[in-house]
């Protein structure tokens, strides 16, 4: 299974000097070049075609994939478990999360779905996947709120263009770019790309499979030292979801302004500030974003954080990086 630590070592392409303000280079999401490459990769994988572990990526984008639930009994790859086996083998405590059974998971959703709308999709999904999603919701991480199906295309677009946090349930605060999870009306932040694995079974499988990966295990089992956090781990979409896993991912990138991502970032910050301060006279144009193709060799990153008891670590988020 391919794996890269998120230490920059997996991004060995030569790029132009960093100190300048002109960007993006061709390999960054949102660049014109990445879009043109995306266009050239379009192909077809029939919805009922059995995925095969044939290569690092399989093209396709322009069709609606079958629900990942229909792949739960198909091995991720040769000599690899099925998603259902992965989901059933998930041990929340191994991820620093509270233990929970399938029955209790359904009860948890019934009790909390009204005030935690990101649980809505979990209500109807496979019980084994539901248990993973509920365990995640009981932890401190934010992956479920911001990087699963609740973060639909519209919410991803609003997040990347206007810092509208999918986890913020107050409409006015969300519009103003206030973070939904941090205390004290602090601003929400988003990188130049917003992504999600929008199929709940696929999202749960990626998380559960990632948790068992040796590199993630190493991070989670790192002896606790206050203030220190293990470095993140990056696995590939194919590693976690199998060939064609990219079909279940969605991504939007801030659109560069006059070829400059830095200018787009500046304008986004100015636009959000004007919106937050109700500056009606602001002439900053509204930021725009573009869809970004996810490939099977794209990375799914795992970041870590101290657990609630401050004696170990848990996963703070899991998200796709194109």
């Amino acid at each position: 299974m391919g794996m890269d630590r998120i230490d920059g070592a997996d991004t060995g392409e030569t790029t132009e000097g960093r100190a300048g303000t002109e960007r993006p280079p061709a390999d960054l999401p949102g660049s014109e070049d990445s879009l043109s490459r995306a266009e050239s990769r379009r192909g077809a994988l029939a919805a009922n075609e059995k995925p095969t572990p044939a290569g690092p990526e399989t093209a396709v984008d322009a069709y609606e994939p079958e629900p990942y639930a229909k792949r739960l009994d198909i091995p991720i790859a040769d000599d690899q478990p099925t998603p259902r086996e992965i989901l059933r083998g998930f041990r929340p405590t191994e991820a620093g999360l509270p233990e929970i059974g399938e029955g209790r998971a359904a009860e948890y959703i019934a009790e909390n779905a009204d005030r935690r709308p990101w649980l809505a999709q979990a209500k109807d999904c496979d019980p084994a996947a539901m248990r993973v999603l509920v365990a995640m919701d009981m932890g401190q991480g934010h992956a479920l709120e911001r990087h699963e199906g609740h973060a639909d295309d519209e919410r991803l677009q609003r997040r990347v263009t206007g810092f509208q946090d999918p986890a913020q349930l107050d409409d006015a605060k969300r519009f103003a770019g206030i973070d939904g999870l941090k205390p004290g009306n602090r601003p929400h932040r988003c990188a130049d790309t917003a992504t999600a694995i929008q199929d709940p079974e696929a999202f749960a499988t990626a998380f559960a499979r990632g948790v068992r990966h040796p590199s993630v295990r190493d991070a989670l089992e790192t002896p606790f030292v206050a203030g220190k956090v293990p470095q993140g781990v990056a696995l590939t979409v194919e590693d976690l979801l199998g060939v064609g896993g990219h079909h279940y991912c969605s991504a939007y990138a801030l659109e560069p302004v006059d070829g400059s991502l830095d200018e787009a970032l500046r304008r986004r910050a100015d636009w959000v500030t004007a919106k937050r301060t109700s500056n009606q006279d602001s002439d900053v144009p509204e930021p725009t974003c573009v869809p970004v193709e996810i490939r099977d060799d794209a990375k799914i990153k795992f970041y870590f954080r101290p657990n609630r008891d401050m004696n170990g670590y848990e996963i703070s988020t899991m998200y796709v990086e194109p």
Binding site: D7, G8, C190, A191, V229, Q231, G232, Y303, S316
Partner: peptide
């Protein structure tokens, strides 16, 4: 704690910054 590629210049700066300064950090 930080698995730094020894061949990467500024590896500690980059990896520590990622852990604590990335928008997706806790």
């Amino acid at each position: 704690f930080w698995n730094i590629d020894p061949d990467l210049p500024f590896g500690t700066l980059i990896s520590v910054s990622e852990i604590y300064c990335h928008p997706e950090a806790y």
